[in-house]
Design a protein around this nucleic acid. Structure first.
Lengths: 242, 242
DNA sequence: AGACCAAGTGAATCTGTGA
DNA sequence: TTCACAGATTCACTTGGTC
């Protein structure tokens, strides 16, 4: 681990890397998996993520892996990694998983298949999504959360809000990068100084937010470009603060 | 219909009354069905709705019917009335259905089983729910919405927001009464001067909001106490405005 | 003021299959 | 071989609040 063992980003496939941890290692799982909900047809989903999610053209961030699954296989796959993640978590550990409206039902299924107790759904209000004539704006993403078995009310964790309103970050490394402050709010579901796991680290926002809030964090990222970008970003941000 | 045929509240079981309308009667379905999600165990669900939803004691509103169903049968029942409602709607008609976080996946299933196209999920941020130590606040309800077949972009309906923030009304007739302004925002998904159907009218907020926004509205309510309370309320409010 | 937005629609084009 | 048609794919365009 870098920086006094406070954080690390491991490069590799989430399912494989999860198998290498010992049980009872983590105090929370907080992650933003690939949604695989870009299109209604298989063909649409097979499109490159760069073209699917953005219209930035030449300057678009590199595409990311793991986003080409149909809904059924996505659910099975999610249940799989959620199960592996739960196995390396302590009892009572919370889990938070970002998801969009289209995959929300599949996400709650997967969470429960994997043995987590589903305890709620929290809303990230993005505020500034694209409007559509004659329709409701698709302006929220969701955080499905739960716990590994019972979650005693006595945990030293305060009350947390149920709706978070933050605009999308201006300049992003990753196509789906979340606002840092949002992640700093979310990680607070973890017990103080706990060890947080993010199996889909992307640009490392969760890991960075966790460290900034006094937690230890381990991220996993398949795409080596992103793994390295995330490490650089976190290093730079933490040095800036020091 | 009362008030120049602008609105009516029919007393009866939603499924039965829905069967009495002719096809192509309605331009939208906007409703807040019983959620049946008050407890995790069957026993908890069998509790009286008055005790489940409120701690107002003696002054609590009367209990309402249709809220003691387990999740599987709730889904089948919802698919049933959603199907019947769709059959009496015009092609392209939108549907909006309030639901809480726990039943959201079941609601999206039921909507699609009934042949509606699921087009999105919208958020009602209640703002003021009860905080819970060590957990995220459960402060949102959801509006699952869709359409009866294609929904051309050319409908004369503007862009609509995707998150609505309104506090719960202070004094309520019905236990689950929605803020009037919220309903006035939601009904705007309907084509101007369209005919809106609410199979679970409750205290009549949807019908009132619809009429105030220039639509025609038909409500159905099982509990005759509520049917009459709703009629009185709507009459009084419309007279007040006139 | 201008860009942005884990879109979505619908027309037009392309591809492949079978009569 | 050619035509018709269905499905897949591309592409332009919409819209408005917010940063």
């Amino acid at each position: 681990m870098s920086d006094n063992q406070k954080w690390s980003i491991l490069q590799g496939d989430a399912l494989k890397v999860l198998g290498t941890f010992a049980p009872n290692t983590f105090d929370a799982v907080i992650t933003d998996p690939p949604y695989a909900s870009g299109g209604r047809t298989q063909a649409e989903k097979n499109k490159s993520t760069a073209r699917k999610y953005s219209s930035m053209g030449e300057n678009a961030p590199p595409p990311f892996d793991g986003d080409a699954k149909d809904q059924r296989s996505w659910t099975r796959w999610a249940a799989e990694w959620l199960y592996e993640a739960r196995k390396v978590c302590k009892s009572g550990a919370p889990v938070c998983m970002f998801i969009d409206w289209r995959q929300l039902p599949a996400a709650t299924d997967a969470l429960q298949w994997a043995g987590w107790i589903w305890r709620g759904t929290t809303v990230w209000d993005k505020g500034n999504s694209r409007p559509q004539k004659g329709r409701f704006r698709q302006q929220a993403e969701y955080i499905v959360w739960g716990s590994n078995g019972d979650m005693p009310i006595s945990r030293p964790v305060p009350c947390l809000p149920g709706v978070f309103k933050y605009g999308n970050p201006q300049s992003r490394i990753h196509l789906t990068e979340k606002p840092l402050q949002l992640m700093r709010d979310i990680v607070k579901i973890t017990e103080p100084s706990g060890h947080i796991l993010d199996p889909f680290a992307g640009s490392g926002t969760t890991v960075l937010a966790a460290v900034q809030e006094g937690y230890t964090a381990t991220g996993i990222e398949v795409t080596d470009t992103y793994a390295e970008l995330a490490r650089e970003r976190i290093r730079a941000e933490l040095e800036k603060a020091a």
